[in-house]
């Protein structure tokens, strides 16, 4: 009995000592974006009691995968509302997985939006257009939240750039996001090129775009891809660049055939 109390008090005293340590490591986890998950009532309602307990017991990633698979099935059945709901759960459970944000945005902006535009049940074009726009916005929202959770990864900036380029046709924003992606250490080399392409479509920013494309052109043979040459030539025309400064026309023999 006395022994039991003694052991209990040892546990309590070491408990007092360990609490600040655990709190510090926990804070570090937050800083490093581990466990950036709020286990609130909302999540419990979403994933159900069992899933919530599982998620709490160290199987968060597994629960996320399970919900993701459900979302995949919902997509195959084109149940768009369900896809949205499930992807919200997936990204809440696993906010550090780029893949889930990317997939969520893609389903909204590319798949659901097209389905909404071609909805046979909705005869009014204005309403279909509005629905389509709403899906674009949902996709954008996923990507923006994904970027907030993963500011150091280029993939989601790229995805947002593509969304602005292909869906909103907003080249200025697209250029901005490609540029942000390109600035990150892990970014692929084409991000810089994409940013410059997008800029070349922005009225009033031709000079800036021209300078960037020209710098890329100068940096070597690797960058001299057909689209870059085409955009550069277009800008040379636009900006009335003196003939001497223009890049040479590619000879048909030099042009890679693709």
């Amino acid at each position: 009995m006395i022994r039991g109390l003694l052991i209990l008090s040892i546990l309590l005293v070491t408990g007092l000592a360990k609490i600040p340590v655990e709190a510090a490591i926990s804070a570090e986890h937050r800083r490093e974006h581990f466990r950036a998950v709020e286990f609130g009532l909302g999540l419990r309602e979403q994933v159900g009691q069992l899933g919530f307990i599982a998620a709490l017991s160290g199987f968060r990633a597994l629960v996320a995968d399970f919900v993701f698979i459900q979302a995949h099935v919902a997509w195959e059945r084109t149940e768009w509302g369900r896809v949205l709901l499930l992807f919200r759960q997936v990204t809440t459970l696993q906010p550090r997985a780029i893949l889930f944000w990317d997939m969520a945005a893609w389903h909204m902006a590319w798949n659901a939006s097209v389905a909404a535009m071609n909805d046979p049940a909705q005869p009014r074009l204005a309403l279909r257009l509005r629905a389509q726009r709403e899906y674009f916005d949902l996709g954008r929202d996923f990507l923006e939240r994904g970027i907030r959770n993963n500011p150091e990864k280029p993939q989601l900036y790229e995805a947002l750039g593509r969304l602005y380029r292909d869906k909103y046709h907003d080249h200025a924003h697209a250029a901005e996001y490609f540029e942000q992606a390109a600035a990150l250490p892990d970014a692929p080399s084409y991000d810089r090129r994409f940013a410059a392409y997008e800029l070349s479509y922005c009225a009033g920013r031709e000079q800036e775009a021209y300078e960037r494309l020209h710098r890329l052109y100068q940096s070597g043979e690797r960058e001299r891809l057909p689209t870059l040459l085409k955009r550069l030539k277009f800008l040379e025309e636009q900006l009335h660049v003196p003939l001497a400064e223009r890049i040479p026309d590619q000879l048909p023999a030099d042009t890679p055939k693709r």
């Binding site: 490591i25 581990f34 550090r96 997985a97």
Partner: peptide, 16 residues
């Protein structure tokens, strides 16, 4: 003990 502190692997898979 805070067992949650030992669950780093979920986020490691996600790339952290």
């Amino acid at each position: 003990p805070d067992l949650q502190l030992f669950n780093l692997v979920d986020d490691v898979v996600a790339g952290t």
